[in-house]
């Protein structure tokens, strides 16, 4: 059986992501002097550069993989789970790469974000890259807006997981690993700002999706499984933002609430099609 043309590029991309992941974790491992005193890693900048360049290489290779697949099957990464996972790894990597580049003090989040990306990376490796039927309703241009807004929403949610993860790990014996990062209060504050950003793009995703649905299926909203799950996700996001404004939430609980946004979105995006025969009614 011939190898799908995009697979070598995909493997190369994941290999580069593995290098970034390994380097990120290596860079965060605490070093101790002979008398047990924590010392600053000597080559932090070089390791962080390696992480960033590896991540960029991974993005470039994934871009090529997606392009090669697009050329092979004749449609963009919008239908099969295989191509959806590739596309999500790609966009989440880009979103995180920008933050990694812009905010050196938050680079420690990479030890949470990269393993989360590997959930998708491991999954895509076991899937069949076979081409799938491309519904005519997917030629609608609103699809692009829906997808791009969704990707930014998921990117903000993933970064929230990174920040919240650090807050939670600081409750454990790994606290010293993140001593060079800003305080947990600051991380919590930034995480909630990103939840606001997530709410904006989640809302835009729903609006663009509704316009697309109206054009494609003759109704803007029908409470089908995927729509209801997306709405519940939006409602959860809105509710926890109000919850944080109403009550003084302990940092660990706030962190779990933030992680819940990504988990909810992940289950909606990748889960609903599994327990629903027609996630979107009339999709084809």
């Amino acid at each position: 059986m011939a190898l799908a043309a995009e697979l070598p590029w995909l493997w190369g991309s994941l290999l580069a992501l593995a290098l970034a992941t390994g380097a990120a974790i290596w860079g965060m491992i605490p070093r101790y002097s002979g008398d047990g005193v924590l010392i600053e890693p000597p080559s932090t900048n070089r390791i962080e550069s390696l992480v960033l360049w590896s991540l960029l290489l991974s993005i470039v290779l994934m871009t090529i993989a997606m392009g090669v697949r697009w050329d092979r099957v004749g449609n963009g990464p919008f239908v099969s789970l295989f191509e959806l996972l590739m596309s999500q790894i790609w966009s989440l990597s880009i979103f995180y790469a920008v933050i990694y580049w812009r905010a050196p003090s938050l680079r420690g989040t990479s030890v949470i974000v990269f393993p989360a990306l590997w959930v998708l990376g491991s999954w895509v490796l076991i899937l069949d890259p076979v081409a799938s039927f491309y519904p005519t309703t997917y030629y609608n241009n609103w699809k692009w807006a829906h997808v791009i807004f969704g990707k930014i929403f998921l990117g903000a949610a993933l970064f929230g997981v990174g920040l919240a993860g650090i807050v939670l790990l600081r409750q454990t014996r790994f606290a010293s690993v993140f001593s060079r990062m800003p305080s947990s209060e600051v991380l919590d504050h930034i995480a909630w700002r990103f939840m606001m950003l997530a709410l904006i793009f989640d809302s835009l995703m729903l609006i663009a999706g509704a316009v697309w649905a109206q054009d494609a299926w003759g109704r803007y909203w029908q409470w089908d499984e995927l729509e209801t799950s997306s709405f519940l996700n939006w409602l959860y996001l809105g509710a926890i933002i109000h919850l944080r404004m109403t009550y003084r939430i302990p940092l660990p609980i706030g962190a779990w609430l933030v992680i819940g946004v990504f988990v909810f979105a992940f289950l909606t995006y990748f889960g609903a099609p599994y327990f629903s025969a027609s996630a979107h009614k009339g999709v084809v």
Binding site: P104, S105, E185, H189
Partner: peptide
């Protein structure tokens, strides 16, 4: 962004 995160945002 990064300066603020180092100092602590409010």
């Amino acid at each position: 962004f990064d300066n603020e995160t180092k100092r602590g945002v409010n």
